[in-house]
Design a protein around this nucleic acid. Structure first.
Lengths: 122, 122
DNA sequence: AATTCATTTGAATACTTGTTCAAATATACA
DNA sequence: TGTATATTTGAACAAGTATTCAAATGAATT
């Protein structure tokens, strides 16, 4: 029961300042699933290598080897990231002989990226 | 000089399949700085806690305590993330007595998020 | 001055993740 | 069948990061 016990400041954790506002705000938010899906796409585009891949594929269909040349990442690194992009259906591919050509598989992505391009250029 | 040496497959690393296409694609990409800035904003929005904070602030101005209640993250976690969001100028704040009220500081963000909301809901 | 409470901060931890290296597939071709 | 090359894959490592906990700060209030 010494003086130091009083120095431990309680952290606002259970208390809510404005219950009405909190409730109103919560009711307007997207559901848990939707929120996670939105976050996932943002996260995917948040890596420089993946973003470069997407930016490149918006301009041209490219094989893995040339994607590596365009992005400056190793073939292996590009391939790993392409798998992620395939999993979330952002890119698709077609095989031609030994090569695999990748394409954008999502019309919205270009708009998303364009919007941020403008944003950054202000 | 044994047989196993032949089994090591060379990885396409220096070679380029279609030099013209690679050059043309490269020329259309945003510069290094711009690319990194775009990636950084996507990355910031790619974390569920930060995205929830942004989504909440789009609806209402909120203090840290209520942001904690809305997002379900601890006050400390919210505060740490708010610092990140301040640093990249996505949110701003005003002080009122003991409380700090946060606001969106970027008009474009709402459009960005809205676009992905539609995208996810298809 | 001392107390209360919202917020911030720093350090530590546990977790995630992007890259590399080596090896495996797959496809064309001699 | 064997060789060459483009791509994929798995394991391992290093670096980054979100959260927690404890403590500090700052601003009323008594």
């Amino acid at each position: 029961m010494n003086l130091f016990m009083n120095k431990i400041a309680p952290v606002c954790e259970v208390e809510i300042i404005d219950k009405a506002k909190v409730r109103a705000t919560k009711s307007k938010l997207p559901g848990r699933n939707e929120t996670m899906q939105i976050a996932e796409i943002f996260k995917i585009l948040g890596d420089p290598t993946r973003l470069k891949i997407i930016l490149a594929l918006i301009e041209n269909e490219l094989c893995v080897c040339d994607l590596s040349a365009v992005t400056g990442a190793s073939v292996s690194a590009v391939s790993h990231q392409l798998r992620l992009l395939r999993n979330v259906k952002l890119v698709k591919y077609r095989k031609e002989n030994k090569m695999v050509y990748y394409n954008i598989d999502d019309d919205h992505i270009k708009n998303l990226v364009d919007q941020l391009k403008e944003h950054v250029n202000e």
